[in-house]
Nucleic acid binder design. Structure first.
Lengths: 248, 248
DNA sequence: CGCTATGTTGACCCGCGTCAATGACCGTGG
DNA sequence: CCACGGTCATTGACGCGGGTCAACATAGCG
C-alpha cells in the first residue's frame, strides 16, 4: 500500500543525529550483499538471546543500542498512567528496534516468546550509516514502509469495527509466516489474547468472544487458543474489509 | 504486518502525543542554505496554488510528484467502500506529500483552505537525494519523526476516550501556530468538524458535543465555530492525558 | 434571496467495555 | 506423583460511551 507521507522539515542547524529505526522485515538469511545493510551490520553486532517475558528496552531509557530481531517475536508497548496499555507493534525476525535521532526509546520492548536479537551500539550503527550513503537509502525506504503500515493501522483503529480488526489481524498474521503444524492455512499466535487486544484497541473479552464467534460460524478452527486454522479464508478477508472493498 | 519501530517521544511538554501536526514548521522563508534540502529543492520545484476543496492527488494514482506545502492546510484522506472516511493527517506549511518509495499515493490529498504547494518531479527529487547523501539523512530523520508521531496517534486512537482525543487535538493545534486574531492562547481551526471527527476516529456530533461541553465548563470559548480560545489550558492538557500523566 | 454545507442539540440505541465466575493449563514444590 | 497457585482463555450479565437518526439554526455563496 502506498502512502502519501507528510514529513516535516525543521531548521537545518538542528542537525539530526542519524539513527536507525524501524524497518520493514529485511531478508535476514539473504546471502552477503555488499549493497545491503546486512554485511556491514554483521561486523558490529553481538548476538543476544532473550527469554520469553523479558524486557529488552524500557520506554524512556536512553537509546544506546539498536537491535535487530533474528528469531522469535517481541512486542512494543506503551503504557498510560492509569494502567491502560497499548501494543504499538509486534516485532518479528528482520525487524529493527532502534532509534531515531531522538535520545530515548519511545516504547518498552518485551519478548513475546524466546527470541534472539543482534545488538549494535548506536555509535557504531551511526558510523556505518555515515560510511555508506546507500545504507541510509535502504533505511529511508524501510522507514517509509513502516510509516505506510502505521497509517494503515490508523485507519484500522480509527474506523473499523472489532470484527474487522480481528479478521484483518488474523489474515495478516497468516500471510506473514508461522502456521500451526501440519495445516494448510492459518496462523500460530505467539502472543496472548491480551496482547492482541491491546494491539487492536479492544479488550481481552471482546477478542475472545469474536474468536468464538468465528469458530461457531465455521470460519476458523481453534484446536488450541494459540492455533488458528482457516476454514474459510475468503470469509475472513471479507470480514476484514467490512464486506466492502477499499475505495479509491 | 507492520513491524518494527522503536521511535521516541516528542520533545515533550509541547504538543504531547499529538500526531504529525505538531512540531516545528519548516523554515520556508529562510535565506538560501547550501547545506539543507531547501536550496537544492528550490531549483527543481514549481509553485502550484490550490483552491480550497480541490484535490491535489488521488489515492491510488501513480506517485509521479513530490509536493511540499508552502502555505495553507491540506488533509490526507482514506476512504472505505461503505463511505467511512479517515483523515490520516493534516498537512501544514513545511510538510511533504508523496515522500515514499512506493509507486502509488496511499491517500487523497485535498486542500482544507487555499494553499500553495511546491511541486517536484519524482525523478528530480530522487536525483537530488542521490546527489547529496546528507539530504537523504535529513529525510531519514524527518520520516522517523513522522513515524514516531504516527505511533503516538495509534495510542490515541486505540486507547483514548473521545474527550482525551479532542483535548489533545486542540492543544496540538494551538502549539503549532495559527491562533484566533487578537487572543493570547487558542487555535484557529481551518478544517471542519467532519474533518476533525474523521481525524480523531469520532463522529461530527460527538466532536460538536464535546466542544460545547468544554465551553460550558469554562475551559474554552467559541466566538465562532472555527476559533477556539483557551480559557484554561491546564485543564485542557489534563483532559488530554486522561488526568494521568503518561507512565514509563 | 433561496440553496446547500456546516454546526449544534436532543432522543434513542447498540457495540463493546466492565465486572464476575469458571475452567484449562503450566510450572513449582512437597 | 499430586497439590497448589498463577496466568490465560472463555462465557455470561449488565451498563455506558459514543454512534445513529432527526430537527433545526446559521452562514457562505451563486
Amino acid at each position: 500500500m502506498a502512502t502519501a507521507l507528510a514529513v516535516q522539515t525543521r531548521p537545518m542547524h538542528t542537525a539530526p543525529r542519524m539513527a536507525a529505526i524501524a524497518a520493514s522485515r529485511a531478508a535476514i538469511a539473504r546471502p552477503a550483499d555488499a549493497t545491503g545493510p546486512d554485511a556491514a551490520l554483521e561486523r558490529i553486532g553481538v548476538l543476544l538471546p532473550v527469554r520469553r517475558g523479558r524486557t529488552v528496552v524500557t520506554q524512556g531509557d536512553p537509546a544506546d543500542y539498536v537491535y535487530r530481531v533474528m528469531k522469535g517475536a517481541l512486542r512494543a508497548v506503551k503504557l498510560l498512567g492509569d494502567g491502560r496499555r497499548h501494543v504499538a507493534d509486534f516485532l518479528l525476525p528482520g525487524d529493527f528496534i532502534g532509534l531515531t535521532d531522538v535520545r530515548d526509546y519511545g516504547h518498552s520492548i518485551e519478548a513475546v516468546e524466546d527470541a534472539v536479537l543482534q545488538r549494535y551500539p548506536r555509535r557504531s550503527f551511526d558510523a556505518v550509516l555515515q560510511a555508506d550513503p546507500r545504507i541510509g537509502r535502504h533505511f529511508l525506504s524501510f522507514v517509509c514502509n513502516e510509516l505506510s503500515a502505521a497509517q494503515e493501522r490508523l485507519l484500522l483503529l480509527g474506523r473499523k469495527s472489532a470484527m474487522e480488526r480481528l479478521a484483518a489481524f488474523l489474515v495478516a498474521m497468516a500471510d506473514q509466516g508461522s502456521k500451526p503444524a501440519g495445516t494448510k492455512d492459518g496462523c500460530a499466535l505467539a502472543m496472548t489474547r491480551i496482547d492482541i487486544a491491546d494491539y487492536l484497541g479492544l479488550t481481552v473479552e471482546t477478542v475472545s468472544r469474536l474468536m468464538s464467534q468465528l469458530r461457531s460460524r465455521g470460519i476458523i478452527d481453534l484446536p488450541r487458543p494459540q492455533d488458528v486454522i482457516f476454514l474459510d479464508r475468503t470469509a475472513l478477508e471479507e470480514l476484514s474489509d467490512g464486506a466492502g472493498e477499499e475505495m479509491h
